[in-house]
């Protein structure tokens, strides 16, 4: 029993060591998002609180904490309170399997990529619960839109993951990174990387696919009735999910913690920093897309997901597997 508690203690210590940086970086990434957005639009963005406005997110968080939480009288109270908690929790637990370096991962499980995929498919529930429990028209419409959108794009993400797995022969995320030692998958699977990036935008409800919270049509979508800390939790969960999608893209296509070329000044930088650089690179792409592309119409979004991305990525699965089979490159032989 004593050893059991000591294991528990070290695990909790490790989890804190992972989660605190993730939460801090979520706050920082919101600031970065707004700065990039402002930069593209020739504005200044948040630059008042702290140096370069770095503490803007902390000030915002403080504001949210001290605001009153309003629970609508006709809402389903328990589900209403549970929804942001679910969103936040699901956004954070997926970080357990992201490998930051060789043997530098919280849970090195065999089915890591499936775990990531499963948790991201659970993410729909936070939104549906929030929209339904609010018992109000706009949140409900937003939730339905969001659920349909996330389920649709998950399908193409799943097929894209199959493409990567064909080249790796393992579901373990560390194995996926190690398989890219010689060649990052972004080069042979470039079309898949593009589709993954666009699907990740849709999966995280980012512009140009932010129809669930299209303010011109639905006020704020599923979060209309939320206020104070509960709204902040939705918001944090959303950004944590965006970061996670960036991390997933970095691990699947950009070689995770590996340095781009294995020569001195590059391979001296430790692996976790490379992963962070790659996540930041993908995130800045996310922010640039947000700043430049206008919002899609809903039928266009569905058409893109089901009629273009899904057939194309299925075709690419056939292409990849035939290529691997023909040149006898199949892994795990």
């Amino acid at each position: 029993m004593d050893s059991y508690f000591s294991i528990l203690f070290t695990e909790v210590y490790k989890i804190l060591f992972l989660l605190v940086p993730v939460l801090v970086s979520v706050a920082m990434i919101v600031w970065l998002d707004r700065r990039v957005w402002a930069f593209v639009q020739k504005r200044r963005g948040p630059n008042v609180v702290g140096p370069f406005g770095l503490f803007q997110s902390l000030a915002d968080a403080l504001k949210y904490i001290f605001k009153e939480i309003i629970i609508p009288a006709s809402s389903n109270k328990l589900v209403f309170v549970l929804a942001p908690v679910v969103t936040m929790t699901l956004a954070l637990i997926s970080w357990a399997v992201i490998p930051f370096g060789e043997d530098f991962v919280l849970a090195d499980i065999n089915v890591g990529i499936l775990y990531l995929f499963a948790v991201s498919s659970l993410g729909v529930y936070g939104i549906i619960m929030g929209g339904w429990a609010s018992n109000s028209k706009y949140p409900f419409l937003g939730a339905i839109r969001s659920a349909a959108q996330m389920v649709s794009y998950e399908v193409s993400i799943g097929v894209i993951i199959i493409n990567v797995l064909l080249c790796v022969g393992s579901l373990n995320l560390s194995d996926i990174v190690m398989a890219q030692e010689n060649l990052w998958f972004v080069i042979p699977l470039f079309p898949m990387f593009v589709i993954f990036f666009i699907s990740a935008l849709a999966e995280t409800n980012r512009p140009p696919f932010d129809l669930p919270e299209a303010e011109a049509e639905l006020v704020a979508g599923y979060q209309t009735e939320y206020s104070g800390m509960m709204y902040a939790m939705f918001w944090l969960g959303e950004y944590a999910n965006i970061l996670l999608m960036c991390a997933m893209g970095a691990v699947l296509f950009l070689g995770g913690w590996l340095s781009p070329i294995d020569i001195f000044p590059f391979n001296a930088i430790p692996g976790p920093f490379w992963l962070i650089f790659k996540i930041l690179f993908l995130f800045i792409l996310f922010a640039l897309v947000k700043a430049t592309v206008p919002r899609y119409r809903y039928d266009q979004l569905m058409k893109l997901g089901w009629k273009i991305f899904l057939p194309f990525s299925l075709f690419y699965v056939v292409l990849t597997s035939s290529f691997l089979l023909y040149f006898d490159l199949l892994p795990g032989k």
Partner: peptide
């Protein structure tokens, strides 16, 4: 994991 993905992620939705 397949249980989570298929049943929870798709069917239950």
């Amino acid at each position: 994991m397949i249980m989570l993905i298929v049943y929870v992620g798709a069917v239950a939705v």
